[in-house]
Design a binder for these strands. Structure first.
Lengths: 153, 153
DNA sequence: ACAAAATAGTACTATAATAGTCCACTTTAA
DNA sequence: TTAAAGTGGACTATTATAGTACTATTTTGT
């Protein structure tokens, strides 16, 4: 129901690949070959991950990329956030053209979208990169909204 | 970090609008005007919601749309799923070209994506349409307004 | 029966977002 | 000092989305 771009897919595979040898530098070429994409595209994704602080880069010959943190300290929310940008709808509060929604003052939808974003973010943050390298599935324990947050109808 | 299309935004506003008067038929024109979009676009979204079983439509003059279920029985997962389609990455298991990922047999990433999808889906399913009509996360409503009273637009 | 008003289905076009590529520049080890 | 690596930014091609239009079908009132 939500679509993630190819680059996010690549990025996840890259991070998982790096998480298997977290102490070593890996060149963009190595990484590109490992996950089966072309080098230019791989470098694009690696740049994004580096600028977001998830990877550290080393220049020069013998350079390459390495995880900036341990796999347990990196979550899927980090990775997806780095490659997809912040969650967001297109209008409804983003573009402040009045009259577009004539009940702006008391618009309950906008406020509730933030709760939804938070819930999705929590779900993604509950999966660490370390878990992504583990073959089998441990069930994800989602943080359900507390009673106080719930609006009982 | 995840982007939802405009149509999903429209759909959410429509569903919220209908949830305020769940017993009445609303024409596409009414709905389009209420949320401030053009009629052709509105009808497109309404068709999608109807085909997904979230709305019931009545044809002919005096026709229109009405919620197929009560607002408490409709979740944001339903609405988003109807308008965005199923969650999905682009490759990695979708296009089965071998060699693309040379460790396909033991690919832990693919399996874990399903866990993530499930977690996101759970998060979205935890928010009902009824909750979307409530102004803000005020934990306890002192006087529970009747459905008719909630119609204040 | 017929006309008017509404939805249904589908196809088409325009626009926007994404993916992918390329090049000039910088850094570093041998 | 040269070769191999990353950096930044701009560019193009492709794809997905949004929006529109048209025809058919259904229903109500006269």
């Amino acid at each position: 129901m939500i679509k993630m771009g190819k680059l996010t897919d690549y990025g996840t595979l890259m991070m998982t690949y790096l998480a298997r040898e977290p102490k070593r530098l890996h060149s963009a070429q190595d990484i590109a070959q490992a996950i089966g994409i072309n080098v230019p595209t791989a470098t694009k994704v690696l740049k994004m991950l580096t600028r977001s602080g998830l990877l550290e880069s080393h220049r020069g010959i013998k350079g390459g990329y390495i995880l900036a943190k341990t796999p347990v300290d990196i979550t899927m929310a980090d990775i997806i956030g780095a490659l997809e940008g912040p969650i967001g709808l297109t209008d409804c509060g983003t573009s402040d053209q009045p009259g577009n929604c004539q009940r702006e003052r008391s618009c309950s939808v906008k406020a509730n979208w933030q709760r939804i974003s938070q819930a999705v973010n929590d779900a993604l943050a509950s999966v660490s990169l370390a878990e992504m390298t583990v073959p089998v599935a441990q069930p994800i324990v989602m943080k359900r909204p507390s009673k106080a947050e719930q609006v009982t109808l």
